[in-house]
Design a protein around this nucleic acid. Structure first.
Length: 269
DNA sequence: GCGACAG
DNA sequence: ATCTTGTCGC
């Protein structure tokens, strides 16, 4: 993993104004258009192992390596734990984690300065080079279009996606229904709270990766946005492809599990 | 001053 | 994010 932009490595020391200024630089360098090497069609989560018929064998090269990233906190709340799980063709090919002391509190809009360090450290402990990062948090859906996924993606120049469970800012093109049908997506547009984009610009989507067919209970959509080197549309397509019957895309779900596990087994070390 | 606010 | 058991529903 190469620190393409070492000047962007999250540093909690500067003032709030300086952190926000850095985010504007990051957003300026970020690309919210498709610019990646792998073939989206090869991003699968089907078992590559098919018994019985030789013709079922893959005729193509191995698919892209996707790394899911998730954060957790140790009981004391003063240390952030980042867990990374790398997948290729649906199989886990590597994992890593890191525990870093928390320097600043959670401030909406400045999350990457609190957790970014742990994530970069965890990623540096990975033996493989991910082709795509799926980060828990926002990307372009951010006050300065520089959310956690954008900050990480730009710093190491790797295509990145932001997957959030709640909407940080922006406005859905149409009201989010109580029971959004599975597979549906609604654009999230920049509004006056997004200071770096023209109002109306599509900065992400509300995506329903899983939903009950009937009943009173309902699942809320995910808020997906590009982090780096991806358009909002492609970002949402890829997240949909990563969904394997659960609300969370597989890379995120597995990273979630890894974080919990690592946490219970003692976040120390 | 009031409201809103990823993890 | 985190504090937390059972419980209602598919």
């Amino acid at each position: 993993m190469a620190l393409t932009r070492p000047e962007f490595v999250p540093n909690p020391s500067p003032s709030r104004e300086e952190m926000e200024a850095l985010q504007r630089e990051i957003a300026d360098v970020a690309t919210f258009e498709d610019d990646f090497d792998f073939d989206p069609a090869t991003l699968t989560f089907d078992s590559p192992v098919d018994l019985g018929d030789d013709t079922q064998q893959r005729l193509t090269d191995d698919g892209p390596i996707v790394a899911g990233v998730d954060q957790a906190f140790l009981d004391d709340g003063d240390r952030a734990l980042s867990a990374v799980v790398a997948l290729q063709d649906g199989a886990i090919v590597d994992r890593a984690s890191a525990v870093v002391d928390t320097e600043i509190p959670y401030i909406p809009g400045l999350l990457s300065f609190r957790e970014g360090g742990a994530i970069l450290t965890a990623l540096s402990n990975l033996a493989v080079e991910p082709d795509l990062l799926v980060v828990d948090g926002s990307g372009q859906i951010h006050f300065r279009e520089a959310g956690l996924a954008t900050h990480i993606g730009v710093t190491i120049d790797v295509p990145a996606i932001g997957v959030a469970k709640n909407l940080l800012c922006g406005t859905p093109a149409e009201p989010i229904p109580d029971h959004m049908p599975e597979g549906e997506r609604i654009a999230v547009e920049a509004d006056e709270t997004v200071e770096t984009a023209e109002p109306g610009t599509v900065i992400g989507h509300a995506v329903q990766t899983r939903q009950y067919e009937s009943g009173s209970t309902s699942i809320n959509p995910l808020y997906v946005s590009p982090g780096h080197r991806l358009s909002p549309e492609t970002t949402t397509d890829l997240v949909s492809q990563c969904a394997a019957g659960y609300k969370l895309p597989e890379p995120t779900r597995l990273a979630d599990r890894a974080a919990d596990q690592r946490k219970r087994e003692g976040g120390e070390e």
